[in-house]
């Protein structure tokens, strides 16, 4: 690690102020992604602002009947929170499918959104990478790209966002509350992360110096019909090759509402309203689900090693929707179920 200085702050305003007074400073929450990148010299901040004393580890009701998840609440405390288990079981399932018990005990909700890609070239300082070093090129395009994107990629970057939690948050229409030098603002989850385009070094639309303070879940939690399907190389402790967050509202066998978000396939969790529209008013049959799956993958493109993901994603979508449509599952299904 390069040397750096460290300070700890007690409230959000102080965190924002600290960021402005130190050049090349970065927030640190759980540390599970940032310290890893610092040990690899991919990240070289001159100053770290420790956030773990901020009073943002809450999980609390909103007046609108939803739930606010503090940015400093750990992934474990969020997933196991009784209100999350009961009202947003999709989110519990997605979080618990990621990383390990130890890492989830450290990782925070804010840090989870901000975690960087697991593209091997991004981590390898000896290879070109536009995300790490704008303009240097993309080693994954003609290289080993088994874990890379099949949707929304650009000629500059084909990386994926690795989070499981964010896929569920996308399906649940969460909001991201941030505080910065210009004050507070709220971003719809779909507008938080970016596609790579010609600026792959920018993962998201957070402005310099802005702090995530909370995530807000709207009232509707889809606690009856939900499924997070994570497809990976081993049964636990691996990032998703493809993951699917599927939720439904049903009237008998007829779909009245549907959401499908995909992980592991793009630079951000992938969701298209038009695909969900195809499901409304339809019976919960394989034919219905296949139609939506084909629509979602219609623009997909493989880069050689990851061609298999296109068919895998289609089949995964059908499977996840079938699971969601099956008997109401009740709260907290096991992550591997």
């Amino acid at each position: 690690m390069h040397p750096f200085s460290y300070s700890s702050v007690n409230d959000a305003a102080a965190a924002v102020r600290e960021q402005a007074t130190h050049s090349h400073s970065t927030f640190i929450a759980g540390g599970t992604n940032l310290l890893d990148l610092m040990k690899e010299n991919v990240a070289r901040p001159a100053h770290l602002i420790g956030l773990n004393q901020l009073p943002l580890a809450f999980v609390e009701d909103t007046p609108e009947g939803g739930l606010r998840l503090g940015a400093l609440a750990t992934n474990a405390n969020t997933a196991y929170h009784p209100e999350v288990e009961k009202r947003y079981p999709l989110l519990s399932q997605a979080i618990l499918s990621g990383a390990t018990a130890q890492l989830r005990n450290m990782a925070t909700n804010g840090g989870n959104l901000m975690q960087r890609t697991r593209c091997y070239y991004f981590y390898d300082l000896t290879t070109p990478c536009n995300k790490r070093e704008p303009g240097s090129g993309c080693s994954a395009l003609g290289g080993f790209n088994r874990i890379h994107a099949i949707l929304g990629a650009s000629e500059q970057c084909i990386a994926t966002h690795p989070s499981d939690m964010c896929v569920a948050l996308t399906a649940l229409d969460a909001l991201v509350c941030v505080q910065g030098p210009q004050g507070e603002r709220v971003l719809p989850f779909a507008d938080f992360h970016r596609l790579p385009g010609s600026t792959p070094h920018q993962d998201n639309n957070l402005k310099p110096g802005e702090l995530i303070t909370a995530l807000e879940l709207p009232k509707q939690g889809f606690a009856q019909h939900y499924h997070y399907l994570k497809i990976r190389d081993r049964a636990s402790y691996a990032f998703a090759l493809v993951s699917i967050a599927a939720v439904l509202e049903l009237d008998g066998d007829t779909i009245t509402e549907a959401r499908v978000a995909l992980g592991g396939v793009a630079h951000k969790p992938w969701r298209e309203r038009a695909a969900e529209e195809l499901l409304i008013g339809q019976p919960t049959t394989e034919a219905t689900f296949t139609k939506a799956a084909s629509y979602l993958l219609r623009g997909a493109r493989g880069y050689g090693h990851n061609d298999f993901k296109i068919e895998l994603a289609k089949r995964g979508i059908v499977r996840a929707l079938q699971q969601a449509a099956a008997e109401p599952r009740g709260p907290r299904a096991l992550p591997w179920a």
């Binding site: 460290y6 700890s8 640190i28 759980g30 540390g31 599970t32 310290l35 890893d36 770290l48 420790g50 773990n52 018990a101 130890q102 890492l103 005990n105 450290m106």
Partner: peptide, 15 residues
């Protein structure tokens, strides 16, 4: 009482 990976946290963060 909570298990964590001690390699991915700084000592100063555990004050």
């Amino acid at each position: 009482g909570t298990r964590i990976n001690s390699c991915l946290t700084l000592a100063v963060m555990q004050q």
